[in-house]
Design a protein around this nucleic acid. Structure first.
Lengths: 236, 236
DNA sequence: GCTACTCTTTGCTCCATCACAACGACTCCG
DNA sequence: CGGAGTCGTTGTGATGGAGCAAAGAGTAGC
């Protein structure tokens, strides 16, 4: 079974850390590989959730649509990351739609299989718990951010998070390695495309970032951090 | 050991659901009761987290303070609810301060004990996972709410959540059974005390709520739901 | 039951951000 | 390489809600 080729991904994944190779092999064999082409979907919002995935290749964006048609971009995942977990583990419906923004592949386990594995491998159960605790903390932080911060700071935080998570180090800065439109940023930070555009233009003029169509390069992360933390600008 | 008196609470708690009485007894014995007087603290933000609690009596408010001094009210817990879990299970620091707003008592287990129990009782591990998954979902929802909704709707949502969680049915409505100031509501919804005051006054004039000093009674939950869901008012 | 304190209300001002429109730039495809 | 479509920029209002000040209402302690 070709699944085994993905073992290295699992070994580093937060869910399976600390497990021995035999156990990992068993886990990998219990999973099922699913490929989704760019533009395709792993699941849609409101669908009942059955499967927890670990992305092994590609990029997946998770968006929520509100009743009024507002869209919120919840997260972008890259290889090695876990997704679909919250719904699959809480035996509920998917809170968001997962769309492949590049040709993608993910290993999936149904919730029953996951439960079984957790019983057999307590280490894994603890890992799952730690993973979820981290997610809660993340959303709590983002919640507070949204509740207390101005748009500019929120955008700075969002870019820093993305740079950290999927940034690629280039000679002149950190490229956010992802097609990332102004619209996307607006949906991540709860603002409008216009405001984002103005903010990014301002930063570009100050040399903090370099941006093009669906592309952002962070040239001066320190300056961005200063904005995110609301320090006064270092130079006049 | 008097802990056993609290068995009924645990049996209904989301963490211990589905466990047999022998196991529960063991769990309860492994816990340590902690009492905190009104105004006292279970823990402070930034402290390293060691203990997961189940509240057996009282009310605890959880607040986060931002670097700039903005305060955010994250949650209010009543008897039977789990708290301190996210930090204790993720072996991190407490993301919030837990203050008793009434004389309170809680059973606590250190993270090591919890880990041990989860290994011994897989049912409990699954419960923990489900609990955390629910928390993630909740914060994701609140995040989206904050990102896309106007203040009035957010306040409506907040009151409905509170009514659901700790409301007490009265003959003329649902009393939110908690000292709940305008300030508190503002901190829950990411707005200011002034705006909250205006909104509540408006609702009171329309007969939707009845409010006094640190007290809110929901007279017409349906109207509040309509506001929360942004339906046009049913009558002129 | 007076006093001090805290919580709440309300009027006013101001501004960050939204909303819309129009234009400009880039990309893809035939 | 030209045209259509998408994405980004910028100017001009409009406004929801923040921020502040001052007064009103409850509450608690003495």
């Amino acid at each position: 079974m070709e699944n085994e080729a993905y073992l290295p991904y699992l070994r580093e994944s937060i869910l399976f850390r600390g497990m021995d190779d035999d156990s990992l092999l068993e886990v990998v064999r219990a999973g099922k590989l699913r490929r989704v082409k760019k533009g395709g979907f792993f699941f849609h919002q409101w669908e009942p959730a059955r499967v927890l995935y670990v992305l092994v290749d590609g990029r997946v964006k998770f968006t929520q649509l509100t009743a009024e048609g507002h869209q919120v971009l919840v997260r972008v995942s890259g290889p090695g990351e876990v997704f679909g977990a919250v719904a699959a583990l809480g035996d509920a419906v998917h809170p968001a739609t997962g769309e492949a923004h590049a040709d993608s592949a993910a290993l999936g386990w149904t919730s029953e299989v996951i439960s079984g594995l957790m019983e057999r491998f307590p280490t894994m159960a603890l890992n799952v718990v730690r993973f979820l605790a981290g997610r809660v903390k993340e959303f709590q932080d983002r919640y507070r951010e949204l509740a207390t911060e101005r748009v500019e700071r929120r955008v700075a935080h969002a870019l820093l998070r993305l740079a950290e998570q999927i940034g690629r180090k280039m000679k002149d800065g950190i490229l956010i390695d992802l097609t990332l439109s102004r619209q996307d940023i607006a949906e991540m930070t709860g603002t409008t495309i216009f405001t984002v555009s103005r903010i990014l233009s301002g930063w570009e003029a100050r040399g903090i970032i370099e941006s093009g169509r669906e592309r952002v390069l962070v040239r001066d992360p320190a300056a961005l951090t200063a904005i995110a933390d609301d320090f006064p600008p270092t130079d006049t």
